[in-house]
């Protein structure tokens, strides 16, 4: 299983990002190999539709689950279409801490958008 995490930098000790689609990096944790890999988020500078594009980036990375700060309506639709589940972390944690909280089942699953789109 692969778990994506929105990251502000490219190490497991980096803080989680405060935006989903505009996050600088996506961390991908592979639960079989126990490895972290970091990828530039190529959707972050999109003029419009970054939410859908960011989900596509995660889909191409074969992510099953993603840990996020907030999600807009288009990102939710796209996550559903890519069959990726999402869980919401709290700000101020590191990538590794957010991942541990997910495994400890402390993060709520996101079923609806938490913010309105078009900002």
């Amino acid at each position: 299983m692969k778990i994506g995490i929105c990251a502000s930098d490219h190490t497991p000790e980096s803080l989680v990002a405060n935006r989903f689609a505009r996050a600088p990096y996506f961390a991908v944790y592979n639960s079989e190999t126990l490895d972290f890999a970091f990828f530039n988020n190529t959707a972050k500078d999109e003029g419009s539709g970054a939410g859908g594009k960011a989900v596509k980036v995660l889909g191409d990375l074969k992510v099953d689950i993603v840990l996020v700060p907030e999600l807009g309506p288009k990102a939710i639709d796209a996550l559903n279409a890519f069959e990726i589940k999402s869980y919401q972390y709290k700000q101020g944690k590191t990538v590794r801490e957010a991942l541990y909280e997910y495994f400890e089942k402390k993060l709520p699953e996101m079923l609806d958008a938490s913010v309105k789109g078009k900002h």
């Binding site: 959707a43 003029g47 419009s48 859908g52 989900v55 596509k56 796209a78 279409a81």
Partner: peptide, 10 residues
């Protein structure tokens, strides 16, 4: 403009 995004099954 990311208006059309091919996903897993649609």
């Amino acid at each position: 403009f990311n208006a059309i995004i091919p996903a897993k099954k649609k």
